[in-house]
Design a protein around this nucleic acid. Structure first.
Length: 390
DNA sequence: AACCGTCACAACCGCAACTGT
DNA sequence: GACAGTTGCGGTTGTGACGGT
């Protein structure tokens, strides 16, 4: 299946795998383990390329793959994760034990995106979609002659989404995040058992906090401490994602009069020594991804990679400028504070008041002025973000 | 029964990130 | 730092199954 090979693979089998091939591959991996995919086919007696073997194993033959339909719970989780992470299928799959990225991607493309469109939600932005976009395909075909002006003038659907949704809908472009190393599934169970003993009960919490891609020895090291000290974790995934934890930590940082006049979360150099990284690259890839995604969702300003790479001279880098321009556009006449104050919210934690700072003040108004979201959804998102349970 | 369109998903590809030298 | 080989990710496609006409 798939398109023609890019290179000559004369003599190699292609297309659907036979039962015999599956058996050979399974037996070989059971005996020798995963890896060395290029050498594997020859040693296993398979006339397949290594890439094909890897794919077959990862997406189909692995013993821990969950069979059967995706449940409603999984469906909801996928939607929420997609809203947060976008098309990062491997990341999403990492939160659904037994499901593969390919499976989730297919399920999204064939079911969920359509389901969202039927609800009038654009599956790419998770914002209300223009009517033209979420019309069922069949209806669109029927009305093909009644193309809107936009389409008549060569606009693609993508363009239409961008322009019609207006400000607040189109995410800013951010560089592709660093490679994410998936959480090995065979460790997932053990990890969950381990965390259960620390009396954290929410599986989403466990999943996020235990992902080895989140470096607990990094500036996010307080993550673990937070988990250990808390016994009331019952929040949704979005309540406890690493970015909020990071926000919680930096809430203690100097927020005003920052000599660099840059976003308080942007320059690690400005953080107090106890929060300084021990390694130059202290924020794990996933946290970085979360930061960027959150920036897309207007929760916080994006950190600047140059800053994290200890290049203070680049603190006002392009990304930050882009983001500031974007905020100005969002706010129209409002002034975007360059050195944002933090807005506090108070939540209960085991009966103790706990001060949690989440939004730079300027950004809370961004949040409020977001267009295209109905009030209910906005409230829900705001409360999800604000009600930290840790 | 034949045809056609759509759906579902396994499999493929290109490319970027990672790793070792 | 440069380079080559390996691995993993996300987008895309081919094909069988299925339902409607």
């Amino acid at each position: 299946m798939g398109r023609a090979p890019c290179c000559s693979k004369v003599g190699l089998h292609r297309g659907p795998w036979t039962a015999r091939e599956d058996l050979l591959l399974t037996k070989y991996i059971e005996a020798h383990g995963e890896g060395q995919w290029r050498a594997l086919p020859k040693q296993a007696g398979l006339l397949r390329c290594g890439k094909s073997c890897r794919l077959r194993w990862m997406n189909y033959l692995r013993p821990d793959i969950k069979r059967g339909n995706i449940t409603l719970d999984e469906e909801e989780l996928i939607v929420r994760l997609h809203k947060l992470l976008g098309n990062r299928w491997s990341l999403i799959a990492g939160r659904l034990p037994g499901r593969t990225d390919n499976e989730i991607k297919n399920f999204w493309n064939t079911h969920l995106s359509k389901k969202l469109m039927m609800k009038g939600i654009d599956p790419k932005t998770h914002q209300p979609a223009p009517e033209r976009i979420h019309k069922p395909r069949r209806l669109m075909k029927d009305n093909e002659d009644q193309e809107t002006e936009s389409f008549e003038h060569g606009m693609t659907e993508k363009d239409a989404i961008s322009s019609s949704g207006g400000k607040g809908v189109q995410p800013i472009h951010l560089p592709k995040p660093n490679r994410y190393i998936a959480f090995p599934r065979h460790l997932s169970h053990e990890a969950n058992v381990g965390i259960t003993n620390t009396s954290v009960t929410n599986s989403d919490v466990q999943d996020v906090l235990l992902s080895p891609s989140i470096d607990l020895n990094s500036p996010c090291k307080n993550l673990q401490a937070s988990v250990d000290s808390d016994h009331s974790s019952s929040g949704m995934l979005s309540d406890i994602n690493p970015i909020h934890e990071l926000g919680r930590e930096v809430s203690n940082l100097p927020q005003q009069g920052d000599p660099e006049d840059c976003f308080p979360w942007a320059c690690i150099e400005d953080w107090p020594s106890e929060f300084q990284p021990t390694e130059p690259k202290c924020i794990s890839n996933e946290v970085e991804l979360e930061l960027q995604t959150s920036a897309n969702n207007h929760i916080i300003p994006p950190p600047t990679k140059a800053c994290r790479n200890n290049k203070p001279e680049n603190c006002t880098n392009t990304l930050q400028k882009i983001y500031e321009e974007y905020l100005k556009e969002l706010l129209q006449d409002e002034t975007v504070p360059s050195n944002a104050e933090m807005v506090s919210s108070t939540t209960k934690n085991n009966g103790d008041d706990q001060e949690i700072n989440i939004f730079p003040e300027g950004l809370s108004s961004v949040w409020e002025c977001l267009e295209g979201e109905d009030e209910l959804l906005k409230d829900q998102r705001a409360s999800e973000t604000l009600s930290l349970h840790l």
